[in-house]
Design a protein around this nucleic acid. Sequence first.
RNA 1: GCCAAGGUGGCAGAGUCCGGCCGAACGCAGCGGCCUGCAGAGCCGCCUACCGCCGGUUCAAAUCCGGCCCUUGGCUCCA
Length: 482
Amino acid sequence: MTLQVTNTLSGDREPFEPQDPDSVLLYYCGLTVSDFAHLGHARSWVHVDVMHRWLEHVGYDVRHVENFTDVNEKIVARTGEDDLGDTESEVARTFIGEVIEDMRSLNLKRAEVYPRVSEHVPEIVDLVETLIEKGYAYESNGSVYFDVTEFEEYGKLSNQRVEEMEAQGEESERAEKRNPADFALWKAGEAHPDNAGPGGQTWDSPWGEGRPGWHIECSAMSMTHLGETLDVHVGGQDLVFPHHENEIAQSEAATGEQFAKYWLHVSLLETGGEKMSSSLENYFTVRNAVSEFGSNAVRMFLLSTAYNSRQTYSEETLSEAVERWERLERGYDRAVEAVDGVDARTKVEDGDLRAAVADARESFAGAMNDDFNTREAIAALLELVSAVNRHVDDRETYDYRALRDAVEAFEELGGEVLGFALADDAEGDVRLLDELVELVLDVRERERESGNYERADDLRDELAALGVEVQDTDDGATFRIE
RNA sequence: GCCAAGGUGGCAGAGUCCGGCCGAACGCAGCGGCCUGCAGAGCCGCCUACCGCCGGUUCAAAUCCGGCCCUUGGCUCCA
């Protein structure tokens, strides 16, 4: 069973074969840091995170690079606003800090490098010079443009034909271009003493003061950190054209090598029938979502639709994900508690549960290998939850080995691969908290024994109001802290 | 206009590449039952699908082919 991925380049599903059979060079087109991240961004992050985790799980050494675009007109536009900062680089730094905090809250694996455009200007200039030398680019009025007619394969990613494309860029720069579809590699710009001003930060170059174009940074940064040919390039669906198309043109024209073997595109998150985006102001920020619903529930939401299918966000779809997450978590907790309470030497065997564990592992791997089908992978885990519940409900004595295997499967597949934080790290104060809740439950139990149910129910309600969910079972009360 | 991706039960969303295990997964909402002092959780069952429309290929189609309708994304910064 080998991994198959849908490659935008071919439009087809292909067997995944990186250049080096033991490692994967992964580049993810990261954020332009001009605002807080919303759930649409988180969708890409979490899917890339799970791809990274699955690739490692099946044995690859993953080299993961993820950029921050910190040179952009939208960042310049926010200088001087509130406490964001007075210059482009200050505003960018502010948002990079916020975005990293959001990423941490989602339990993402760290990339190896998070390169920034502002730190790669020399590499960008070198790349532009190479393109001019090779005849793919030309200078015009202090700016440098890529001549799309010189790169024969231009349009191969997005299936666009040069002659049918509308002009890229603003009206003012069209006059400087040879062909309407040419795009800027370097933009002439005035120097500003404080690196602020309407034009933003500028750098010296062979063509005078200016700024990098809008696509060149990813080519320069990925080549710097991962080499000329990437195995996997991931990004949002909305970047296919022109961003990724232009990256291919620049990079392949410069090196003569294939830029990326596999192009994977994460489809967009929609709400109210249109995509979630900063400019449409219909977004839900990562931090609000995480603080309201919790990191795991947000992750469950984002993984409950395959990465290359569009996903609908609404209050209803998110609250469904909360329920899905809680079902998984309760199932896991139940298996852990059952294992803890059973003698390891018990000879009880439940063939159904044992088969369910094996089925779950097989279905999970099949789903992930089938183009990272996270929805199906989660379904496999939830079926295991059902099997655990049936076992614990029906049996007087438990099958130790089967339950232990189930716990392992949850931790390995749900925890390590899908990235859910299954076990709360029981630090000291958490233990004290548990003991205090136990104390209240003991009091309540005594009230129940003396038939004082009204008082017992009040206690349960009061605990619920504090976020402690109490469940009465045959063996006494259990609880969860939300 | 051009390019791309979609239309599956009340909602959401797999399955479509490689036709039969799909009388359509997992789940949410709702209903009934079991359990239970009650509630919740859990378990069992129902709601629950003529898979956008029309035609074709085939012993067999949600899945392949053709036509049509509709939606979304891209062509401007965008995950």
